[in-house]
Simulated scan of single mutants.
Amino acid sequence: MRRLLLAAVAALVPGIALAQNCPAPIPASELVKPGTLVMSTNPTLPPLQFVNAQGQLQGMRIELGNEIAKRLCLQPEYVRIEFSAMIPGLAARRWDVINTGIFYTEERARMMQMIRYENNAVAISAARGNPLNIRTQDDLAGKTVGVELGGFEERTLRSMSQALVAAGKPAIEIRTFDNFAVAFQALRAGQVQAVTSIDAVAAEYDQRGDFPRVLHGINATPAALAMRSRPLAEQVSWALQQMLADGWLTNLFTRYGVEIADRSFSIAGPQ
Score class of each variant (00 low, 15 high):
180 F>D: 14
181 A>D: 10
182 V>K: 02
183 A>F: 03
183 A>T: 11
183 A>C: 07
184 F>E: 11
184 F>N: 14
185 Q>E: 05
186 A>F: 06
187 L>Y: 07
188 R>H: 09
190 G>E: 02
192 V>M: 00
193 Q>M: 00
194 A>E: 04
195 V>W: 00
197 S>E: 12
197 S>Y: 01
197 S>H: 10
198 I>V: 11
198 I>Y: 03
199 D>Y: 06
200 A>C: 02
202 A>H: 02
203 A>H: 08
204 E>L: 04
204 E>T: 08
205 Y>M: 10
205 Y>P: 12
206 D>P: 10
206 D>V: 10
207 Q>A: 15
208 R>H: 14
209 G>E: 00
210 D>H: 04
210 D>P: 08
211 F>K: 09
212 P>W: 02
215 L>R: 10
215 L>C: 02
215 L>G: 04
216 H>N: 15
216 H>L: 13
216 H>A: 13
216 H>Y: 15
218 I>K: 09
219 N>G: 09
219 N>I: 09
219 N>Y: 15
221 T>C: 08
221 T>W: 11
222 P>G: 03
222 P>M: 07
222 P>V: 08
223 A>Y: 09
223 A>H: 06
224 A>K: 03
224 A>F: 08
224 A>G: 05
225 L>W: 10
225 L>I: 13
225 L>S: 03
226 A>P: 09
226 A>L: 05
226 A>K: 05
227 M>T: 08
228 R>A: 15
228 R>P: 03
230 R>N: 12
230 R>E: 05
230 R>V: 07
231 P>L: 02
231 P>N: 00
231 P>W: 00
233 A>G: 07
233 A>Q: 03
235 Q>M: 09
235 Q>I: 02
236 V>H: 02
236 V>N: 07
237 S>G: 01
238 W>P: 02
239 A>E: 04
245 A>C: 05
246 D>E: 14
247 G>I: 03
247 G>K: 01
248 W>M: 01
250 T>D: 14
251 N>A: 15
252 L>P: 04
252 L>I: 13
254 T>Q: 14
254 T>C: 03
254 T>P: 10
255 R>E: 11
257 G>C: 09
257 G>A: 08
259 E>P: 09
259 E>V: 11
259 E>Q: 15
260 I>Y: 12
260 I>L: 13
263 R>Y: 09
263 R>S: 10
264 S>H: 13
264 S>V: 07
264 S>P: 01
265 F>N: 00
267 I>T: 06
267 I>H: 12
268 A>T: 13
269 G>D: 04
